[in-house]
Amino acid sequence: MTGRATPEKGSDASGGTKRASDLLTIGDMARRTGLSVSAIRFYEEKGLVFPHRNAGGQRRFLRSDVRRLSFIVIAQQLGLTIGEIQAVLARLPEGRTPNRADWTQISAGIRTRIDDKIAQLTRTRERLDGCIGCGCLSLKACQLYNPGDRAARQGSGPRRLLAD
């Protein structure tokens, strides 16, 4: 659990009074975020969201968790793994949702990753003309699958298919 106070104690992460009507059920969260209930439970299991439990054991989420879950989905679409998202969110105090300043820092790292991916895709695009699409696996001229004929060092023939 994060440092958030439970609803029974009457306060939220910002220290303000928290009413039961301020909390959302998991179904409400699913409707608000477009995520399935099972996805929200998965994110809870991974420690990315921390719902409170009412007296009956039902999950209750803070309204700010809508933004937190939205951040998680966007981060995944940008290529961050669950582990990387955990690390980013763990750096935030009291389990709060990333704010503008947090996002500026986070997005700098994502931007670097995107730039690297663009460079990789550009190299692949430039090598496409050298590929004749034959599936040979070790042709010296194949710049996509076997650049510089690296497979030749492993022996002749389709080395990636043959077990030594």
Score class of each variant (00 low, 15 high):
Leu161Tyr: 01
Arg123Ala: 13
Arg41Gly: 05
Arg153Thr: 06
Ser36Phe: 04
Ala20Gly: 00
Thr33Glu: 13
Ile114Pro: 02
Arg68Asp: 03
Gly56Ser: 11
Phe61Cys: 03
Gly83Arg: 09
Leu144Ala: 11
His52Arg: 05
Ala87Trp: 03
Asp22Ala: 12
Gly3Trp: 07
Asn99Val: 14
Met29Gly: 08
Glu8Met: 10
Val88Phe: 08
Gln76Arg: 15
Ile118Asp: 11
Thr122Trp: 01
Arg68Val: 04
Leu48Cys: 02
Ile74Val: 15
Leu121Thr: 09
Leu162Arg: 01
Cys136Arg: 04
Cys134Met: 07
Cys142Ile: 08
Asn54Ala: 02
Gly133Arg: 10
Lys18Leu: 09
Gln86Trp: 02
Ile85Phe: 02
Gln86Lys: 14
His52Pro: 00
Leu121Arg: 06
Ala108Phe: 07
Arg150Pro: 02
Glu94Cys: 13
Gly16Trp: 03
Ile85Val: 15
Pro98Phe: 08
Ala151Cys: 07
Ser14Trp: 08
Ala163His: 04
Asp129Gly: 14
Ser138Lys: 09
Asp12Asn: 08
Val49Cys: 04
Glu94Val: 15
Arg111Thr: 07
Ala141Trp: 08
Ala5Phe: 12
Gly130Thr: 15
Arg153Phe: 03
Pro51Lys: 03
Trp103Phe: 07
Phe42Arg: 05
Lys9Met: 05
Gly16Arg: 15
Arg53Ala: 12
Arg113Ser: 11
Leu69Pro: 05
Ala90Lys: 13
Lys18His: 05
Gly3Asp: 14
Tyr43Asn: 01
Arg123Met: 10
Gly109Trp: 12
Phe50Cys: 03
Glu84Ile: 13
Gly27His: 00
Asp28Pro: 08
Gly16Ile: 04
Pro51Trp: 02
Ile40Leu: 09
Ser156His: 01
Asn146Thr: 07
Cys134Arg: 04
Val66Ser: 06
Tyr145Pro: 00
Ile74Asn: 12
Gly47Pro: 00
Leu69Arg: 07
Arg100Thr: 14
Pro7Lys: 02
Val88Lys: 14
Gly130Ile: 12
Met1Tyr: 08
Leu161Trp: 00
Cys136Ser: 10
Gly135Ser: 02
Arg41Tyr: 00
Arg41Phe: 07
Phe50Pro: 00
Gln76Asn: 04
Leu48Trp: 00
Asp149Tyr: 12
Ile82Asp: 04
Gly57His: 08
Ala152Ser: 15
Ala30Phe: 05
Tyr43Glu: 06
Gly57Val: 10
Thr104Trp: 01
Phe71Met: 10
Ala5Val: 11
Arg19Thr: 13
Arg60Gln: 06
Leu89Ile: 11
Ser36Arg: 15
Trp103Asp: 04
Arg123Asp: 15
Arg123Trp: 01
Arg125Gly: 08
Arg63Ser: 09
Ser14Val: 10
Val49Tyr: 02
Gly56Leu: 07
Ala151Pro: 00
Gln58Thr: 06
Gly135Asn: 03
Arg153Asp: 02
Thr2Asp: 13
Arg4Val: 07
Cys136Asp: 03
Ile26Tyr: 01
Leu128Glu: 15
Ala108Ser: 14
Thr6Ile: 09
Gly95Thr: 11
Gly10Thr: 01
Leu161Gln: 09
Arg113Thr: 10
Ser107Phe: 10
Cys131Glu: 05
Arg63Asn: 03
Arg113Trp: 04
Arg68Ala: 08
Arg153Trp: 00
Leu24Phe: 05
Asn99Thr: 14
Pro147Ile: 06
Cys136Trp: 00
